[in-house]
Amino acid sequence: MKRQWKVGEIAKMAGITIRTLRFYDQIGLFSPSDYSPSGYRLYTEKDISRLQQILSLKELGLSLEEIKGVMSGDQLSLSDIVTIQIDRLKENIRMQQKLLHELENVSSRMQRNEPFTVEHVMNIMRTMKMNHEKFFAERKSSMDLHLDRLGEYLDEHPEEPGQGGFKNE
């Protein structure tokens, strides 16, 4: 008989959350090979190999949509994947350099006691907004991971009401 693992076991082995695996299943990126009679998701060694490929592509910076395309047979070579990563890094560097340039411009004007124009302020605000949006998107992703782990912990350690857990009032 083939060895099979439940969703919690796969999540733990891969270092990701159960919620992430459920989401991957929901979007059609990574689904279990089988289900137990009681409805548990069951994964095989082949599934584990597929998940490893998905996580490796994600680590290289591909979006879930890009990964889905690669996994469904759209051919992206290793060279294509590296090029995508390089392009993303260049864009991040470009945004940081733009912000640096704007801030240096402000600093220089301040040192010369020159007034700011509305255009200067708007340029800085636009550039900072782009950087902040990226920062907060990354923070949200991190928070989601922590909330997933908290949810898993609470699922694994349910407590009776009134016994130190949450009280229904």
Rank of each mutant, 00 (worst) to 15 (best):
T44D: 05
T20F: 08
E152D: 07
G28N: 09
T17D: 00
I54F: 01
L60S: 15
D87P: 00
T83Y: 10
G28Q: 11
I86T: 14
Q85C: 12
P158G: 02
V70A: 09
A14P: 00
Q97A: 13
R126P: 06
M110S: 10
K90N: 11
P32A: 03
G151L: 05
P115L: 11
E66K: 09
L150D: 03
S56I: 06
E91G: 05
V106C: 06
K140F: 06
K2F: 06
L42P: 04
E114S: 07
N168Y: 07
K140W: 05
L103K: 02
M71I: 15
D144I: 07
D74I: 10
R22W: 09
M122W: 06
M122A: 15
P158K: 05
E159L: 15
L147E: 09
I16T: 02
L21K: 00
F23L: 01
H157R: 13
L42V: 07
R109G: 02
R94L: 08
S49A: 15
Q52K: 13
L60Y: 14
T20C: 08
E104W: 03
M122I: 13
S77G: 10
Y40H: 11
G39R: 06
D47N: 15
G165M: 08
L154M: 12
E160T: 14
P161Y: 08
D155T: 07
A137M: 10
L103C: 13
Q96Y: 14
L62S: 04
K2P: 05
I27G: 10
K167E: 13
D74T: 11
H157I: 10
N168H: 09
R126L: 12
V82H: 01
F23R: 00
S108H: 10
E160P: 00
E156C: 02
E104H: 08
L147A: 07
V121F: 13
R3M: 11
K140G: 04
Y153P: 06
E102M: 03
I48P: 00
S72D: 06
E45Q: 15
G69N: 13
G8D: 01
E9C: 06
E45Y: 08
I93S: 04
M125S: 13
R109T: 04
K2N: 12
L76E: 07
Y35P: 00
H157F: 14
E133C: 08
I84Q: 11
E91Q: 10
Q53W: 03
L103E: 09
G39K: 04
G151Q: 13
Q96T: 14
H120G: 04
Q85W: 02
V7K: 01
R126G: 09
P37Q: 11
L100C: 12
N113E: 14
E65Y: 04
F166G: 05
V121D: 03
L89C: 10
M128V: 15
Q52G: 12
E59L: 08
P161G: 10
N113R: 13
M130F: 04
L64E: 03
E138M: 15
I86G: 08
R139T: 14
I54C: 00
R139K: 10
N168V: 09
N131Y: 07
M71P: 04
L21I: 06
Y24P: 06
T83W: 12
R19S: 09
K2G: 06
K68C: 02
L145W: 03
V118A: 14
